[in-house]
Simulated assay, not measured.
Amino acid sequence: MDSRRKRQRRTSKRCVSEEVSSVAWEFIDMTEQEEDLIYRMYRLVGDRWDLIAGRIPGRKPEEIERFWIMRHGEGFTAKRHGGYS
């Protein structure tokens, strides 16, 4: 095994990311104009959150993605409509 592969194995073991439950997320408050722009940009570029966030001053790509998931995710949709399906 060459040194590059060894380094890659070592780094991949250290970079174990902890996923945060999406239920623990706080709802992100967007203005009507921001929501409209997010919907229109999503139709144009898909889930390229960095491009969408570049059009909305003060918003980060992670924030836009979390907003989208909370609005369109199955678990959150069920919660908004009064229970789990």
Rank of each mutant, 00 (worst) to 15 (best):
V20C: 01
R80Y: 00
P57W: 06
E26K: 14
I52W: 02
E26C: 10
T77E: 12
R80N: 06
L51Q: 15
G46E: 07
S21V: 03
A78R: 15
I28R: 05
V16A: 06
R9E: 13
T31V: 04
I52H: 02
Y39P: 01
L51H: 13
W68Y: 12
K13P: 06
F67M: 01
I64D: 07
L51M: 15
R59S: 02
A53R: 04
Y42E: 00
S17Q: 04
A78Y: 14
W49G: 02
G46W: 03
R59C: 01
E74S: 14
D2T: 14
K13T: 07
R14C: 00
R66C: 07
R9D: 11
E35V: 11
I64H: 05
Q8T: 08
F67L: 07
D36I: 04
D29L: 05
M41S: 13
E18R: 14
G58K: 09
I28P: 01
G75Q: 10
E19R: 11
F27K: 15
R66W: 04
M70A: 03
Y84K: 13
F27A: 15
H81K: 15
F76E: 09
E35L: 07
T77F: 09
K13A: 14
V20A: 01
K79R: 15
M30C: 12
E74Q: 15
E63M: 07
P57Y: 08
S12W: 05
E65V: 08
M30V: 13
S3H: 14
V20I: 07
A53M: 06
G54P: 04
I52G: 05
R40F: 10
M70I: 09
M41D: 07
S17R: 12
E26P: 04
R4H: 11
M70S: 02
W68R: 05
E35H: 06
E65Y: 02
W68S: 07
E26Q: 14
S21D: 13
S17Y: 04
E74L: 15
D50T: 09
M70V: 03
H72D: 00
L44P: 02
E63K: 06
E62A: 12
P57G: 11
G82P: 00
M70Q: 11
A53S: 11
R48K: 15
